[in-house]
Simulated scan of single mutants.
Amino acid sequence: MSKTTVDAVMAELAALDDPKMRAANEKRGDDHGVNLSRLRAVAKRLKTQQDLARGLWATDDTAARLLALLVCRPKDFGPAELDAMLRQARAPKVHDWLVNYVAKKSPHAEQLRVAWTADPDPVVASAGWALTAGRVATTPEGLDLSGLLDTIEGQMKDAPDRLQWAMNTTLAQIGIEHAEYRVRAIGIGERLGVLKDYPTPPNCTSPYAPAWINEMVGRRGA
């Protein structure tokens, strides 16, 4: 298979740009107009191409960066490179995909989780908390869950939106996955009231931690 050039991919993305979708995405801070299903189809065709991924990332174009995160090889990024990429990620969707599709799969995930969580930039810190939420659910060994609840209880209420959301996700995961902390997690959620009035579509789970915890535990019959 011949290597695809950045210019060729950028031309393809430009052809896929839909002004109506761009307008809708921009309301959420994502400055691109490419349907994500079509973007994934492009990525499926291109398969993994690390050099292309780095080239697409360097364009600073949101759609190109999303595609880069789909065709990259997460294990090939060093911790400094991932840290720089996170700080360059302007659009919320790019930030989310970088954390969930790349950083979580990196051999440096734990190192980055610790560093990012302690970062003074709340957007960077939110990435650390997102990785923490993932660990709570999958590999909680070594985590101080009680200490995490202490921090959430003291800081989540006044945290900026993205950081608040990630801390709230961690709170919910602790309550869902760890029965011994469930009552405390629900109590913290009830006292803080974070996302209690978040508009939730029918048949979707509310992000309000007490409701989220009870819903997921109820589904499991736990």
Rank of each mutant, 00 (worst) to 15 (best):
A64F: 05
G55Y: 05
I152Y: 13
V123G: 01
A43P: 11
A179Y: 01
I174H: 09
A14G: 04
D121G: 00
R54K: 15
D7R: 08
A130W: 02
L149E: 15
D158S: 02
R28D: 09
E141D: 15
L69K: 03
K47D: 15
H178I: 07
E215W: 15
V9K: 02
R184Q: 12
A222V: 12
V42D: 00
R191L: 04
M216K: 13
M1Q: 08
A24F: 10
A185V: 07
K157S: 06
P199Y: 02
A115F: 03
W97R: 06
E12C: 04
A23V: 03
Y198A: 09
V123Y: 09
A130I: 00
K93E: 11
P92N: 14
S2M: 02
H95M: 02
Q111Y: 07
Q88S: 07
G193Y: 04
D96G: 03
H178E: 07
D76V: 01
R54G: 04
T48H: 06
L163D: 09
A80K: 15
P201E: 01
N25T: 00
A209R: 03
N203G: 05
T139V: 15
V183A: 14
A84L: 14
R184M: 03
C72H: 13
L149K: 15
K105L: 14
A222R: 14
A209E: 01
G78D: 12
E110F: 10
L112A: 08
R40C: 14
W129F: 05
N100R: 08
L66K: 08
E81R: 13
D76E: 12
K196L: 10
G154F: 00
A89F: 06
E81A: 15
L112C: 09
A58M: 05
A84M: 11
W129G: 09
R90V: 14
G134Q: 11
P19T: 09
M167N: 05
E177H: 15
C72P: 13
G154D: 13
P122T: 11
K196N: 13
D83L: 02
D119M: 06
D60P: 00
G29C: 03
E177K: 12
R191P: 03
A11N: 04
C204V: 02
